[in-house]
Nucleic acid binder design. Structure first.
Lengths: 208, 208
DNA sequence: ACCGGGGTGTTACCTCGGGTAACATCGTCG
DNA sequence: CGACGATGTTACCCGAGGTAACACCCCGGT
């Protein structure tokens, strides 16, 4: 029997323990869950990043495909955007731990790190960029705008989605509306409030 | 002489080594830079989080105050938004390593982690939320919208800012324009491109 | 029947980073 | 002087990533 099936088993085990302990689960823990010891893991995946990477790719497919499909949906643009937002939120809602892994990988490599967007999210950002480039007429600046917006929208949904998952301030559809409204320029369209000037916000050091 | 001055010296040393090696610099390295050994650091800051926290608070002040000031600027709303965006980008541009520390802390604590926004950024998000609540008339939903938007905008700028810092695809002012345009509903306003339907994007596994 | 290779697995170890214990020193205050 | 509180030290513990060396087991070839 080739290595593939065992690899799958190991990934399943890793999946379970991460589901249970969140990312950051130790290699020992994963090995134990699989009923084996560390060196086997390392034989199969090289190092921790390899394991996480494999695990990631496995789940990225689903989310990415869902988002891609949503981006290609033959809807009015606003509806399409809402559909994409809802798809993402539904994804992170369904399996928080897994998507935490996708969206908040342990830093680990100090090499090219410093990126707010994990690989899976970078793929989503690229998907959005491509969609914008292909679907929206943005004139001469379109490449720059599409790239910046792809990253920006992804980061926006990531941060807002995290907050939503944590605090559950409202239903998913309401959240989708809120974000779509933001992207739809409601910030620009809304009227000023009467007292636009306020008496200087309190400056407490915020003992975090 | 009380502990405060020494604390400052130690923080300065930590600052230097982080400037040089990025976040993730080891306590040993920091101690060495300060010309001392680890236990002293621990006496002063308790643990690594304590040190990083102190370091963070030290720099958070500047960025936060700048953003807060920009948010309170008596400008047209669009100009104010641009001003805030520019302030943030200027900040991360000026001292990338420092702001990497503020914006991408090592996870460390597996407790309430899972948040896309570091403490410093959460403060900025709150600042934005407050500004939106106080300045923009959003009707009944205003609390929810303001909170969601605060997080969302912060995440957007974080992700886009990281990308911009890394690849420098354009000038800062251009980047500010791109993001302000996004927030201003240009995505909604732009016309469709002729061939809105495309021949299914290639589905390569993306050997990341 | 023998042997070798490629899979399985093991124990035991290394390194490095966070964190601590125990001890030594210096200056100041009563 | 003595005591206290800060300074500093060496030496250690622990956990996690990662590796070396060895053992087993099956299967196919000669």
């Amino acid at each position: 029997m080739s290595r593939e099936p065992r690899r799958e088993q190991l990934l399943n085990a890793a999946d379970r323990v991460i589901q249970r302990e969140g990312p950051g689960a130790s290699m020992n823990a994963i090995a134990a869950e699989a009923g084996i010891t560390k060196p086997i893991l390392y034989r199969h995946f090289g190092d921790r990043n390899g394991l996480i990477g494999a695990l990631t790719e496995r789940h990225t497919g689903g989310l990415l495909a869902a988002v891609r499909a949503a981006l290609a949906e033959p809807l009015e643009r606003r509806d399409r955007v809402e559909h994409v937002l809802d798809t993402y939120l539904a994804g992170i809602e369904a399996r928080p731990q897994v998507y935490r892994l996708l969206t908040h990988p342990e830093p680990g490599d100090p090499s090219g790190a410093g990126n707010a967007l994990a690989p899976a999210l970078r793929q989503i950002a690229e998907e959005i960029t491509r969609a914008v480039q292909n679907q929206v007429d943005l004139g001469a600046d379109r490449d720059l705008l599409a790239e910046a917006w792809g990253r920006g929208i992804t980061g926006m949904v990531l941060a807002a989605g995290d907050w939503w998952l944590e605090t559950r301030p409202c239903s998913r559809t309401r959240m989708v509306q809120a974000l779509a409204d933001l992207l739809w320029g409601r910030l620009a369209a809304a009227a000023d409030l009467p007292t636009a000037v306020l008496p200087a916000a309190p400056v407490e050091p915020a003992a975090d």
